[in-house]
């Protein structure tokens, strides 16, 4: 079976490096990492991910802007996006069944197990 392609867009390099190691170790995913919103946006078309893990607060182009641009593009509008946030609380995210404003959310810090669970529920 093909591994699911996951694009991780987050400006924290150490975080993305570990996410990549941890998710790839499961053998189920192919991970591409981009450390800026702009690069993440351009990588999407080429990589054609099954799901994007998208940080919100980033310096050059923030997560919501990336998401908006992707939704406007016919090629990328159906790619599921899971937002990563350090500002929302776990309880808030969970109380809303992991969805804020129509998008799934994960509050940092996140455990691998929970991350896999969210990916499995949302990737197409």
């Amino acid at each position: 079976m093909d591994r699911k392609r996951i694009l991780v867009i987050d400006d924290e390099e150490n975080f993305t490096k570990l996410i990549k190691w941890n998710l790839e170790k499961t053998g189920k995913y192919e991970i591409r990492v981009e450390n800026s919103g702009l690069l993440g946006f351009s990588a999407t078309k080429e990589f054609k991910p099954h799901l994007i893990l998208l940080d919100i607060l980033m310096p050059d182009m923030d997560g919501s802007e990336v998401a908006f641009q992707l939704k406007c593009d016919e090629d990328t509008k159906d790619i599921p996006i899971v937002f990563l946030t350090a500002v929302a609380k776990k309880e808030e995210v969970e109380a809303n069944s992991g969805v804020i404003g129509g998008h799934p959310f994960i509050a940092k810090p996140v455990e691998l197990e929970q991350l896999i669970d969210v990916i499995e529920r949302n990737a197409y």
Partner: peptide, 12 residues
């Protein structure tokens, strides 16, 4: 929380 996220992923 960002560093905490890194620590937790590192522990995983």
């Amino acid at each position: 929380r960002n560093p905490l996220g890194i620590i937790l992923q590192g522990v995983n």
